[in-house]
Simulated scan of single mutants.
Amino acid sequence: MPECSLRGTNSYNQQEEKMNSKRATAVTLAATSVVLLAACGDKAPSCADPAAVSLVQQIYQQSFDKEHASMSPERQRSVQITSKNTKVTVESITTARSDESTGKKTCSAVLTAVMPQDAIPTDQRMLNHLRGTYEPQGAALDGNTVKGNVTYIVQRTEDGKEILVKLTGHLAFMGLFHDLAMLRVFDKSEAEIAKIAGEAPPAAAAKSAEPPPPEVSPVTQPAPAAAVPAPANTAPAAAPVTPPANVTAAAPAVTVPHLCTAAETPIFACSTGKKRASVCTGRAGGNEQLTYRIAPLEGAVEMEYPSAGTGAASAFQRGSQVGQDGTAVNFLSFDKGNYRYVVYAGDGENERKGVVVEQSGKRIADLRCQIDAMSAMSAKELDRYGMRVDSRPLQLP
């Protein structure tokens, strides 16, 4: 029997469709791939034909790569840490419908990927959120295996030389995989991420550090978000914390380490023990600007919002509500895709401060400020930027 040579071409078609209330919209991606099988006969391919199954895997991978390329460099790295060692397979193949006159077959299958055990959230609330989001779309977690129901059509062209495969339904599987890959590293330090990725740890993290003074010992956080750097471990316990060099010029009165430039002034900064976060105010092009930044304690800024030159009034919203203890909590919020970030601070120096992260309306992180915290986010301060009011509630425990 002569050998078969393979050659593929691909096209993509995207359309938005309404999903359930847990996800307002989703994108259904239909990919079509053509394979040329030279001198392989005219027999209609089956759903389990090796060439058809190979095409299903190729189409999924090309869809994954396209989505991956649209992400930020930080998110690309986070997802790649898990995807580079995870294989997607096609299992449980069945023929749902067969048209003998055309040779077209409609097939059902299950995409599977065995995830590293540390990629599965231990927080039951997070697991419930993922299930509520993706199970209605056909993707689910079975132990540490991601499974997704897909459908594909396979048929040979009239000249008998090509196999046409059209795959649908794989976006939910891809979305669940992405979310698990991101959650795997979301609250990790650069040293922890490097260890997971099998990379050399950052130079600063590789050095053995002295035990931190009692007053700066971080409290373990259950979820990821944002934070501010801990003071240098080499400083005596009684000595004042020395801010980074760029702090002094911006705001001499602020002794809390922050991520603002010399041309900016911090209105919020704190450390959660693993990361540091800041909200900085400044002017550019005549616009009053606010900038949110987050970074590991020993690393460079990994997220900055918004892009340079965007005015505060168009990038952020403001809000205020009364907490359970009767004190006012002021907050600043912004949205990035399905995620909502809320920086909050109660009135007074001793009130709680932190950052809340929500995904599709569900709180997935509440990072409390532990040390080196400051806030000037009074209702009067936030009001002066002309921001819209965020009427959504601030979900604090």
Rank of each mutant, 00 (worst) to 15 (best):
L171R: 15
H129V: 10
V154F: 04
S189L: 07
G160I: 04
K195S: 09
P116E: 10
L183N: 09
K188T: 03
A181H: 08
L127S: 08
A181T: 06
E100N: 11
T94I: 13
I193C: 03
N128K: 15
Q137A: 13
H170G: 03
P136K: 12
A113M: 13
K166T: 14
N144V: 05
K188S: 06
T145S: 03
D142K: 13
D187W: 10
L180G: 02
L180Y: 07
G103I: 00
T168Y: 04
K166N: 11
A200N: 06
L171V: 10
K147L: 04
T157R: 03
R184G: 01
G132V: 06
K195M: 11
I193V: 15
N144D: 10
F177W: 15
V154Y: 03
E135I: 08
M182E: 14
A197I: 05
A96I: 11
L176S: 07
L167V: 10
F186I: 12
I120E: 03
E100F: 07
E190R: 09
P121S: 14
G132W: 04
G175R: 13
H178D: 13
A140C: 03
H178R: 15
T168G: 04
G103M: 00
L171W: 12
E158C: 02
P201I: 10
V165T: 04
L176M: 11
V154K: 06
D159N: 09
K147M: 11
Y152R: 01
L180M: 08
E199T: 05
F186W: 13
A203M: 09
T168P: 00
D99G: 00
V146G: 06
E192A: 12
A140M: 11
L176H: 07
D159I: 05
G103N: 01
N144R: 15
G175H: 06
A140T: 12
L171K: 14
T151K: 12
Q155Y: 11
S189N: 09
L167C: 04
K166P: 00
Q155I: 00
N149E: 11
D187E: 10
K195H: 09
M126E: 14
P121N: 11
T112R: 15
G160D: 01
M115W: 11
T94Y: 06
Y152D: 01
I120H: 04
K105W: 00
T157W: 01
P116M: 13
A113V: 09
G148S: 06
T112A: 14
Y134E: 07
M182T: 09
T106P: 00
I193P: 02
A204C: 05
G175T: 04
E135M: 13
L141V: 07
S92C: 02
E135C: 05
E162W: 01
A140R: 15
V146Q: 05
I163N: 10
I120P: 01
F173W: 14
K147D: 02
G148Q: 08
T151F: 09
Q117E: 14
T157F: 01
S101P: 01
P201E: 10
V154L: 02
P121T: 14
